[in-house]
Nucleic acid binder design. Structure first.
Lengths: 156, 156
DNA sequence: TTAGCACTCATCCTTTTGGGTGATTTACTA
DNA sequence: TAGTAAATCACCCAAAAGGATGAGTGCTAA
């Protein structure tokens, strides 16, 4: 509420100082005339006071002027790579559930032995599965299998 | 500059009207007293005028408040263009150019022999490179290396 | 009921991969 | 100029992966 007033304190102070200075000069130079010019001083005081009052009222009443600046900020978002399983390819390749499990663990970089341990089946079985996997995917190595599966959107 | 003045025209007009009305009433009802109260009227006029002056000054001086509105504009990057090579990780890992080449071909599912043929160097050299690669990437198998490189955005 | 499929496991053998070590050349740097 | 790092290659050995084949079990659809 008074912030605006304080904001223009300088202007007001400047005006006041000027008025005071003028009055002082008058008082010093025309000291003897003051008494006969009481009415002038009185009027000046009224003028000054009401000017300040006017300013104060205006600042108090006046709604702050708003100047709207619209800044466009561009944010680059990386879309959540929503993995969409390629059902078409999956059904076409006709991979069994076990084969898919093995494929997924393969893609994580696990060795056949680790996969066997995780799935509670023997290493030989994993080898069988992986061999069938390579046949169905038409690849020769596990790295190729993983790469192809990734391209076909069979795995994330 | 005068926009502000016009904006508060209503307030000013209201004040003026009120003052005029009061003066009018005094003039009508206390017509006979006016002459003996000339000084009061004069003072009132001064007060009114300077109040208005103050208001006018204040409105003229007042700076508009700036209000910044930030509009966020979200742009989703195309997933196809999203591969940004992770330079930070790349420099931290301190992979040599040859090692990077081997890594890339590895990720494509090529065997060491194929990579050797492609790069016109011996199989043994490829083995040396891949071994150093695994050391630097802190992995044990090539599938893990590919997986980790993919996660670190070293390869697409 | 039987043929087919998925899943399991095994054995034998080959290829690929990985670890370890050492050596040479080249190019750049303190 | 000596030292360092990258790149090259070799040899040996072990582990992992892959290919081929056979076989047992359980479930399902023709």
């Amino acid at each position: 509420m008074f912030r605006a007033f304080f904001k223009y304190k300088l202007v007001i102070l400047y005006g006041c100082s000027l008025a005071v200075l003028l009055l002082l000069m008058r008082w010093l130079e025309l000291r003897f005339l003051i008494l006969s010019h009481t009415q002038d001083v009185y009027n000046g005081a009224i003028a000054l006071i009401f000017t300040i009052l006017g300013i104060w009222i205006a600042l108090k009443i006046a709604k702050p002027k708003k100047e709207t600046i619209i800044v466009e900020k561009t944010i680059y978002l990386q879309p959540e790579k929503e993995f969409i399983l390629n059902q078409t390819a999956l059904t076409e390749l006709n991979l069994s559930t076990r084969e898919m499990e093995v494929l997924e663990l393969m893609a994580k970089g696990m060795s056949n032995a680790e996969i066997a341990e995780k799935l509670f089946i023997s290493l030989n079985t994993i080898k069988t599965h992986s061999s069938k996997l390579y046949e169905k995917l038409e690849v020769k190595r596990r790295t190729q299998a993983v790469e192809k599966a990734r391209q076909l959107k069979l795995i994330a």
